[in-house]
Amino acid sequence: MTNDSYDKPMPEPTPDSAPYWAGLQQHKLLLQKCAGCGRIRHYPRPMCDACYSTDVTWVEAAGRGKVHSWTITHHAFVPGFRDELPYVLATVDLEEGVRMNAQLRGADPVSLRIGLPVRVDYERAREGLTLPILRAEG
């Protein structure tokens, strides 16, 4: 436990994912782009499953997408999230052609639907950790 009492699971950046987490600190959603064949992939991982290259560059995503599917959590599986219940988790098709997961904030549950346009926003969770969140577009 740290002095700001952050009691949620804390990501541990790896050599493959550190640029992703660092990008979030600067309010940028960075995606891996294969330096061999150009394919974009997410979540961050060491090898391109199209050409087996391990060389990557990082590109900034537009931060726009559409809800592919979603769920609303009503039960505190993890104690640290108890105060946020109920919260929406969404799987989103980004414009770049990959899917990402995040919490969707501020949407009226009645308006939640597959295909809902969303944009990526950023939330400082604690010192040294910014998480991406999703907001309904428009």
Binding site: K8, P9, M10, P11, E12, T14, S17, Y43, P44, T73, F77, V78, G80, F81, E84, Y87, L89, M100, N101, A102, Q103, L131
Partner: peptide, 11 residues
Amino acid sequence: DMLHTRAYGWQ
């Protein structure tokens, strides 16, 4: 791979 689920309360 839990980096992209559990940090968001997805477990």
